[in-house]
Design a protein around this nucleic acid. Structure first.
Length: 718
DNA sequence: AAAAAAT
């Protein structure tokens, strides 16, 4: 074996490959240093002479030469340059009126294409050009493309967006949604002030979109809906000289957004954001959160959202967490974990401020989407407590994250990959962390993040508080628990892993030839149903079969374009299509309220998958039924799985017409196939803009702006 | 088999 792997060698023939690999030391460019010319990472692109650099013109007419970011940052910060000020101010809401002034600078950079490349490589504009050229030979165009990719035209950002499929659509070729999505969305660097304002000032359409993005089935959406209203009135805002530009009322300027908003509304499945009172709220005497010993400000802030009774996991966890104990919490998303760890952490941090680059609390979450959810749900509370938080995750600009860290962040919310990256860059130092939270630890373990998590936790000082949340506790998680938790108090929403009381389980052993009809009958019921299949192909097939039987169903899997996924989810959430046939892409992380039945047309691979799939229903206290179809040869496996998952249910033989099926809500199907053209309309109910066949330039423009264009690619049916 | 995380 010594003469191993010639292939690999051939592939890696060039020395610069090695140099270009992640192995190279990263330069802590946040400190305003330009990597040395021979630096392995930074030196990839030669530096063009200043006069060769592309020039852009700022709004005010001055030229921006696309300076290197190192200089820019270094130079500007002490001078009170806006970039930094703005960033941090943003979070407090004190900046908007001034956006315009640097719209010319930053936003132009960004819009100019490849601003991220700027950020990331520090190479400024020119290097970006170069690389684009290299890659695609397309110069200009490719640059655009890359920008898009990076922003989540690319699929990796899916998750982050999660529910946010809409944003993707809207963005089309656009950049702004990314801005919003990124946590710098508060950075307000877009030249389009309104948009920024919208978001923070509580412009309705934007709220809604934001909710969407978050996949908001989660309760916190509701809170968030109105939260901006709340925190922008906080004392900090006043201190920062916050001046509202727009009220909740829309101005005529906003008509464009308004139109967009209407379209969004059609898609919005968050029916109505909970109304947030801006009046002073009296905290009721029996307020459950107050009883847990939380600071009044937080309790009051929650009450303002109408949140006054803690969920079980919150009730169980918060007192211990407040007492500084390590906590091991079992509970799925939707059980209120975020507040369970968020509230005590914020309470503990309040009253002090972190030093630059040294956050005092860290929340580690497996996916970007989740990170956003956590960040967004905690936002109002963080503000009320006078703290600063930051979301740090992949796919987002480094600049905002680094700048915020430089400025000081109290509560850092991160996905493992990016956090490790930032650690390498010394953009963040974890030696002041007092509270560490691992959310969805099992998920992280499943995704192979244990090394990253270990790396991070090893940098966190010992003796700090650790909170670990996980839906299941198996090997990977146990390793983390053993290693990092000291004498933890264990809390579960319920002892049996699966079981929310409100969840009913049926495991049906069926004849193969009955599968189709049983699937259709179970799916054909009132309310929303998620059908799980093992493969993408299977999902497509089952969805088609359902439609042939007269059930409005659409497939969702990782093989679809982002745009297509958006449409499917949008249609599902609004109820236009009540049945979602999905692979495990939807098993985790996608939150949709009001799913009353989960039907597993193919059994899950293991009990963990079972629990995650099941977790799509019975969310937040609602009732839900989980029906699993097993073929006779899968019976044994299902028995074992049921045991492992802590279910009482056992496989039961079933055939069409059986009572068991009715108990699961099965209803006979019409048998009248759904017309494919109608189905398309259900998926995307606003094809009005495109009558013109392949679409002229105008159609292309309008369409592309809001919709990913998945549909227009295909031939038009009907 | 599918999905996810840094580029």
């Amino acid at each position: 074996m010594p003469a191993k792997n010639p292939n690999k060698k051939a592939r890696w023939s060039a020395a610069e490959k090695a140099a270009a690999s992640t192995k190279g030391p990263k330069k802590p460019y946040h400190r305003g240093q330009k990597p040395a010319d021979d630096a392995p990472r930074g030196a990839k692109r030669p530096v063009r002479a200043a006069e060769d650099r592309p020039r852009r013109v700022r709004k005010d007419g001055a030229e921006d030469q696309g300076q290197r970011r190192w200089e820019r940052r270094e130079d500007t910060r002490p001078g009170g340059f806006r970039s930094d000020d703005r960033r941090s101010d943003d979070r407090r809401g004190g900046f908007r009126s001034d956006d315009r002034r640097d719209g010319g600078f930053r936003s132009d950079d960004r819009r100019g294409g490849g601003f991220r490349s700027d950020d990331r490589r520090g190479g400024g504009f020119r290097s970006d050009d170069r690389r684009s050229d290299d890659r695609r030979g397309g110069g200009f165009r490719s640059d655009d493309r890359r920008t898009d990719d990076r922003r989540g035209g690319g699929f990796r950002s899916d998750d982050r967006r999660g529910g946010g499929f809409r944003s993707d659509d809207r963005r089309g070729g656009g950049f702004r949604s990314d801005d919003r999505r990124a946590d710098d969305r508060r950075g307000g660097f877009r030249s389009d002030d309104r948009r920024t304002d919208d978001r923070r000032g509580g412009f309705r359409s934007d709220d809604r979109r934001t909710d969407d993005r978050r996949g908001g089935g989660f309760r916190s959406d509701d809170r968030r809906g109105g939260s901006r209203e709340g925190f922008r009135r906080g004392p900090r805002d006043e201190r920062q000289g916050y001046r509202p530009r727009f009220d909740r009322e829309q101005t005529s300027q906003d008509h464009h957004q308004d139109a967009e908003a209407e379209r969004m509304e059609a898609d919005s499945w968050v029916s109505a954001a909970r109304t947030t009172t801006t009046e002073p709220v009296t905290v009721a005497e029996d307020n459950g959160f107050a009883a847990l010993g939380l600071p009044e400000r937080l309790v009051e802030r929650l009450a303002r959202e109408g949140i006054s009774s803690p969920f079980p996991i919150q009730e169980a966890t918060i007192p211990d967490a407040l007492a500084g104990k390590d906590v091991l919490g079992r509970g799925q998303t939707g059980s209120g974990k975020t507040l369970a760890f968020g509230l005590p952490t914020i309470a503990r941090l309040a009253g002090e401020r972190s030093k630059p680059r040294r956050p005092r609390a860290l929340v580690l979450v497996p996916t970007r989407e989740l990170a956003m959810q956590v960040s967004d749900s905690l936002e109002p509370l963080v503000h009320v407590a006078g703290l600063r938080h930051k979301l740090v995750a992949g796919g987002l600009s480094y600049t905002g994250q680094i700048a915020a860290l430089d400025k000081g962040v109290d509560l850092l919310i991160a996905t493992p990959g990016r956090l490790v990256d930032l650690l390498d860059r010394e953009a963040v130092i974890l030696d002041s962390i007092e509270v560490t939270i691992l959310d969805e630890a099992d998920h992280m373990a499943d995704m192979g993040f244990v090394p990253a998590v270990t790396r991070v936790l090893d940098e966190v000082p010992e003796g700090g508080q650790r909170l670990l949340f996980s839906a299941t506790l198996d090997k990977g998680v146990d390793t983390l628990v053993q290693r990092y938790l000291v004498d933890p108090v264990t809390h579960s929403t319920n002892d049996a892993t699966a079981s929310v009381d409100t969840m009913e389980h049926h495991i049906l052993v069926i004849d193969p030839q009955h599968k189709k009809v049983i699937t259709a009958e179970v799916a054909n019921r009132e309310g929303r149903t998620v059908v799980f299949c093992r493969t993408k192909l299977g999902a497509d097939r089952v969805a088609l079969q359902l439609r042939e039987s007269g059930v409005r169903a659409a497939a969702l899997h990782g093989g679809l374009t982002q745009g297509a996924r958006n449409k499917v989810l949008g249609a599902f959430r609004t109820g236009r299509i009540p049945v979602l046939v999905a692979t495990d892409v939807a098993a985790r992380g996608i939150h949709v309220d009001d799913v009353s039945v989960v039907l597993q047309a193919d059994p899950p691979a293991d009990h963990k998958d079972y629990l995650h799939r099941a977790g799509r229903t019975a969310r937040a206290g609602e009732r839900g039924t989980v029906v699993t179809l097993a073929l006779p040869h899968q019976r044994k496996m299902m028995e074992r799985m049921a045991t492992d998952a802590g279910l009482e249910a056992r496989p039961v033989k079933a055939a069409p017409g059986d009572e068991v099926l009715e108990a699961a809500g099965a209803a006979p199907v019409s048998g009248v196939p759904i017309d494919e053209a109608d189905f398309r309309k259900l998926l995307d109910p606003r094809p009005a803009r495109r009558h013109g066949g392949t679409g002229g330039p105008r159609g292309a423009r309008t369409g592309g702006q809001y919709r990913g264009g998945g549909q227009r690619r295909g031939p038009r049916h009907g």
